[in-house]
Design a protein around this nucleic acid. Structure first.
Lengths: 200, 200
DNA sequence: TGTACATCAGTGAACGCGCGTTCACTGATGTAC
DNA sequence: TGTACATCAGTGAACGCGCGTTCACTGATGTAC
């Protein structure tokens, strides 16, 4: 046979870095952050435990690169949902932000878990600052009174707080429940948009 | 000598449960969550590692009881700051909530770290639901338009999001900085109150 | 006031755990000439 | 087109780590009679 045996594992993988990240992302979503270890990623990719270290340097750096992916996904979602929202940018922003958090809860959590990842990792720094710039941009596309920066802080805080509390299940427990019309996370996600219209 | 030697460590401590919690709280504040281990608490209290287990059952339960303390402290702060705030309850609430988070950042973080504590621990369940009830109460003391429950969700989300983002240092990085008038966490804490007046 | 006994509080040695990381190495690839 | 050699990608065995928890135990306290 002059063609290589397709069963034979080649010594060089070809795209191991990506394969390891894919495995990490899947394990994060399905089994949680604690399941994402150097050794588990290596097992999932079929390589030795030293291979991920070779590509990422350490677990903290691997998790940072994974979180960078998360910020990239957030940006993609914001851009897709808000491309034609016009004046209502800051309102739609809250909805899109919360929707992202609910669709990838463990990734969203990881993105803020600076105790467990290397917050100075280069890819993460780049992806995060890009995402935060986008947040600021979208929050300022609305016409309204007041300091644009204040509006940005308010939109982001509201979105982040609502997303976080929803993921903890606390809002449903404390303020929702049967008969209240607020029973599922989806009810609250839909509500996110309305929140921006509440006047104090 | 017919009085007991004050140097001699008595076999029974007298108030070991409280002493362990005190040690845990101090280590949490000074060294971070990772420093709070069964063995470290035991060392700090001068007992064997099995003693904390005897009182709390497990590390997850110990941390839950510690978080229950945190919710108690939050309630105390809210009640103190808001006792005579009149109509502006929901606005002062955001300020008080953020001030608490900034004054005890690691405790605030622990209170929401359900991956690391036992969220069903009895003391924690009681303290948390008391605190959430207080939040709801204070957010509804203001006169204003709209659904009271929506207003409560908005106030709490805004407070929680702002507190969380401030603790991550992200708002200062993204939107503040030298020359912006928003440089320190204190600047932002003062701002929390103002945020409630922004109109969209 | 004593005594017997149940219960509570804490001991200290030991176990197993899977982990991240290191190390000297080998297999494979690409490149200069 | 071939060859020499540097560089890159991955191996696999080993190390040390402090941890949470268990266990059979002992010292101390309180209570019934």
């Amino acid at each position: 046979m002059d063609h290589p045996d397709p069963q034979a594992k080649p010594y060089h993988h070809g795209d191991l870095r990506r394969a390891i990240l894919d495995a990490a992302e899947r394990m994060l979503a399905e089994e949680g952050l604690e399941a994402v270890t150097i050794r588990a990623c290596a097992r999932a990719a079929g390589v030795s435990p030293a291979a991920p270290i070779h590509h990422f340097g350490s677990l903290r750096d691997l998790l940072a690169v994974l979180a960078a992916r998360g910020f990239g996904q957030l940006v993609a979602r914001l851009d897709a949902d808000l491309s034609q929202s016009g004046h209502q940018g800051d309102r739609a922003l809250v909805g899109a932000y919360v929707a992202f958090a609910l669709s990838a809860p463990r990734m969203f959590d990881l993105m803020w878990r600076e105790d467990v990842l290397n917050p100075a990792q280069a890819e993460l720094v780049a992806a995060r600052s890009l995402a935060l710039g986008r947040l600021q941009f979208h929050s300022q596309t609305a016409i309204g009174e007041g300091d644009a920066r204040l509006r940005a802080i308010r939109s982001w805080s509201l979105a982040h707080g609502l997303a976080t509390l929803l993921l903890h299940g606390r809002i449903v427990t404390a303020l929702g429940g049967p008969g209240t019309g607020l029973e599922t996370k989806e009810d609250f996600a839909a509500l996110a948009y309305d929140l921006m219209f509440v006047r104090g």
